[in-house]
Nucleic acid binder design. Sequence first.
DNA 1: GCCGTTTTCGGCCCGACTGTTTTCAGTCG
Length: 590
Amino acid sequence: MENIEIAGVLEELGDLLEINGSNPFRIRAYRNAVRTVLGLTRSLSAMVEAEEDLTELPAIGKDMSAHIVELLETGELARLAEVAAEVPRSLVQLVKLDGVGPKKTKKLWESLGVTTVDELEKALKDGRVESLEGFGATSVEKILTSIEDFRRYSGRFLISQVDELIGPLLAHMREGPGVERIEVAGSYRRRKETIGDVDLLVQAELPAPAVMEHFTAFGSVDRVVAAGDTRGAVVLRSGLEVDLRVIPGRSFGAALHYFTGSKEHNVAVRQIAQRQGLRVNEWGVFRMPEGVDPDEVGKEEGERVAGGTEESVFDVLDLAWVPPVLRENRGEVEAARDDSLPDLVTLEDIQGDLHMHSTWSDGKASVEEMAQACRARGYRYMAMSDHSPALAMVGGITPERAADQWEEIARVQEGLDGITIFKSLEVDILRDGSLDMTDEVLEALDLVVVSVHSLMDMDRVSMTDRVITAIQHPQVDILAHPTGRLLARREPFQIEMEEVLQAARDLNVAVEINASPHRLDLNDVHAHRAKELGVRVCISTDAHSVQRLDHMSYGVDQARRAWLNKGDVLNTMTLKQMQVWLDRRKGTSA
DNA sequence: GCCGTTTTCGGCCCGACTGTTTTCAGTCG
């Protein structure tokens, strides 16, 4: 059983316990355990196999550990069956609807016998819900809308989609009356791969009803969800929800920190504050007078000690300012305290792009157009890495055509100075781990990228063997999009990434962070693990057009979320260093 | 259910908005 499936079972059990009215802290314990499991780079199955003590993992205690072992051994969980005997499992779907939580779910089920979204829809339409205590005509309408949305946009938005969608909104808000400053917080500011909704912060003197009016009047607003004094929410026609908070200047930094999250990061920061007798909320940092119970006083009670800027919030807690990409409570708070935060790689550090396509396979631009575009981006080198012939549908390059392409590359190179074009191919990894190209051609290439494009439903052991066999080929330099995932479309294939990364380290092969916003593969957890193991990470766009070369920034964001610094990233090397690296095996085998 | 500079029991982050139960519970982030 895969980690993601184990996390799914624990999450479902947590949801059911919540509907059943269990201790809220027990529910939180399940949520925390799910988070830990999803963040692992190794499969729990392998860890249990190696007789490792799972309770060493954060948020995994005696019970969780036993649950995991039981799931691995039997594929089932007796505790889940027990709870499911009391609470129908389908109810977890209801809790996921906007405006419906565990309490209302329980009420709907106990009073009306509703157990599924379809049954709920029926009950909403025939008036049975409206007559229930705690519900009314308005909530019926709201829930019906959530059901519609749930069916229409059952997903999150890619960060690149959000970039496109909110540009016009930001421009609109900048023209708003009394708007002094505007920032996007939340997972967007943390540069996560996908975004659930957008958190917009506007600095203005309160009260500021004109700001809220201006916000809800934006042209692309489909409907207004909420519109209070300081908080509003709208859904755009694209289905993207945008939350707006209006914040006075004295609190803007505290609010920016609070709404940037993550939730887990905020909890960790609050705990530190608590130990220092300070209270942190979105309005500022406050020192509480002796003997005053924070629960008994107002939100801005006590002596304000910080809040205008984000820096001031960290500073008063004796923490270094933490880049938003690191705020996931994965050690950044401790690092901020010890002043040991990483010096993260930046887009300016990138010296070249080592994975792209041209019209020789399925790209839209010629070799020359791609080369010109790379030079215009200030790169010193690039790899022209079209597909190998296994991808017949995209016109992969056969051994016979390879020489023709090299001629063209040589011709383009002659007319270009300041950038070096590496002869390359993105070679398919075949079923048995062999490469879809003759050794002769592979040896003639400057740089070899390999990747999996077929038979993605192999079992984990076979897929892991397949990929490791492939990178053992002495000509391989980079393993591209190592898990094959397509965000919001295709799950990663099953592979034991820990073993692959260790093999890459031993073989001195780099692994890719594919910068396409549809892939961002490796993910942050795996890329961080690569760094820990000393595996070189390469950030590449896999661009199929000139414009998509600009996706590099998404890849850099992903690398930053993985704590990578310049030295961890292959394509921050100078041309000279890169040429030495590409020759690395000649030195060792001689 | 987890965890320990608050340490094996007792605590676990905090506030806004909405609708409806006219004083607050539920939901959300």
